[in-house]
């Protein structure tokens, strides 16, 4: 196993940085609205499938397809909030969770009607590979890490310097207070859904050339991202990134032993960590 250690680690960081983006997208929505969105994985799938469909079937140029895919995910996210969650205002957290599960089922079956049930892939952005230990990692995969890093940087800038970002942070801090300052909590929540869905969509676009994507892959993506967010601790963006990376790395090392049980064992570890550190691994 020794000579493959580096390879597993590299792959883990690649997949993990995508999970980290999804975890962050959970966090963006959660901190602003207090809603855990179980449909988050469907935004990953919608971003990925829109891009893949536009590029592969409609022959749209890659950059345009990616933009369109991320934009579609954002619009769907916004629509979900406006149609599904805003009307249920004041419901209990359990009700919100079940509504987002309902949304997830609806989006999944709609996607299967729009794009069919076959898996889609995207061509890799860069060809070739890099030797790590006894194995080789795609250059494309390695590109994922800086792209994810850049998204996170943009996110930091967004939350620090734009009016919408500051409004969202104010809502996360104290909803009543934000309202008293003339901030529309409704608009900030809507914006958080659009932004969260867009982030998830970016994650989907990046993972599609590596793992391929189909209409029912969203749920598992969402659970992985959610696990990352919970491991890192909700409300803590740095924790979410670390949690996402951890889920990715753990999963890749499990793959070495048995790829069939990858999802099961990853979830077992998540549950155990959840029990040991319910507030996240960074908590004291």
């Amino acid at each position: 196993m020794g000579q493959y250690l580096g390879l597993f680690f590299a792959n883990g960081v690649v997949i993990g940085s995508i999970y980290a983006l999804i975890a962050l997208s959970f966090n963006v929505i959660y901190s602003t609205t207090g809603i855990i969105n179980f449909a988050q994985g469907e935004f990953v799938m919608i971003g990925a499938l829109t891009t893949a469909w536009l590029h592969v079937a409609m022959h749209l140029a890659m950059p345009l397809a990616i933009l369109a895919g991320v934009f579609t995910a954002a619009v769907v996210g916004l629509a979900c909030y406006l149609v599904g969650l805003r009307p249920a205002k004041g419901a209990s957290p359990v009700t919100y969770i079940i509504i987002t599960i309902a949304i997830s089922i609806i989006l999944k079956s709609l996607a299967s009607f729009v794009w069919g049930t076959d898996p889609y892939t995207l061509p890799k952005l860069v060809q070739g590979g890099v030797r790590i230990g006894a194995g080789e990692v795609d250059k494309h995969s390695l590109l994922v890490i800086p792209v994810a890093g850049m998204c996170m940087l943009l996110l930091v800038l967004f939350f620090r310097y734009t009016r919408v970002g500051l409004n969202m942070r104010a809502c996360a801090e104290n909803k009543e207070g934000a309202r008293l300052c003339g901030i529309s909590v409704n608009n900030a929540s809507a914006a958080s859904f659009a932004l969260g869905a867009a982030l998830a969509g970016v994650g989907g676009v990046m993972i599609t050339p590596i793992l391929s994507m189909q209409f029912d892959a969203g749920m598992m993506m969402g659970i992985k991202g959610f696990s990352g967010a919970i491991l890192g601790g909700f409300g803590n963006p740095i924790g979410c990134v670390i949690g996402g990376l951890m889920v990715g790395v753990i999963e890749q090392f499990i793959c070495y032993f048995s790829s069939g049980y990858k999802d099961i064992l990853a979830l077992v570890i998540v549950v155990v960590l959840l029990l040991l550190r319910p507030r996240g691994i960074l908590s004291r």
Partner: peptide, 11 residues
Amino acid sequence: GNHLALATLAV
């Protein structure tokens, strides 16, 4: 709440 939802779903 949310943690319980994830844990039971995982189980």
